[in-house]
């Protein structure tokens, strides 16, 4: 399996929300629905507080519980990669995948009745481009690439910088990383 990853620098992210707008525009996401979002996380005790911004989306897990929970095979891995897609023509709208996602990231029930989600813009990836959110980030805090390639930007950043993934204890093996 080829593993694609997204690496987001929480130091240089300013929480502007351009990634959210870019996603909605690129993927024609219906009004009122979002495939990605930005979280402002504050931790510590006053006055020693620490704030980080995180652009979040589907983690395209290597062990995606949503894929395993799908009763029809509509949720699947794209072309032997970790990119999780939903085949609309197989989706019954049973919502098992939504319940199965520990990140609550399979977020969209389209008006037509099938599940929609972040695709890592696989149509752009197919053309050798970055996902729209990464390409539009004004502070260049978002990076995308193949983890299997040791020379890729994501592999290099994860080698050189302190980082975390969200809720690794779920066992889902998420592939969106945050630089600290």
């Amino acid at each position: 399996m080829t593993t694609y990853a997204m690496v987001i620098d929480t130091i240089t992210c300013i929480g502007c929300g351009d990634c959210v707008v870019a996603c909605k525009t690129e993927n024609k996401v219906p009004e009122g629905l979002n495939r990605d979002w930005v979280v402002e996380a504050t931790s510590g005790e006053y006055p020693n507080l620490h704030t980080e911004f995180r652009s979040e989306r589907c983690n395209h897990c290597s062990h995606a519980t949503c894929v395993y929970a799908c009763p029809t095979g509509a949720s699947h891995y794209w072309k032997d990669t970790n990119i999780v897609l939903v085949a609309a023509e197989k989706c019954t709208g049973c919502k098992a995948c939504i319940a199965a996602c520990p990140y609550d990231a399979r977020l969209i029930m389209r008006p037509e009745g099938y599940i929609d989600k972040c695709t890592f813009c696989h149509h752009r990836v197919d053309d050798g481009l970055d996902p729209a959110c990464v390409a539009s980030c004004p502070t260049h805090c978002m990076h995308f690439g193949m983890l299997d390639n040791p020379d890729s930007i994501v592999s290099r950043l994860l080698r050189e910088r302190r980082h975390k993934a969200l809720l690794p204890e779920t066992g889902n093996e998420p592939n969106v990383y945050y630089l600290l």
Partner: peptide
Amino acid sequence: MIEEVLVTARHN
């Protein structure tokens, strides 16, 4: 203390 707030519109 940890507080996590959605700062962009998400009300799916």
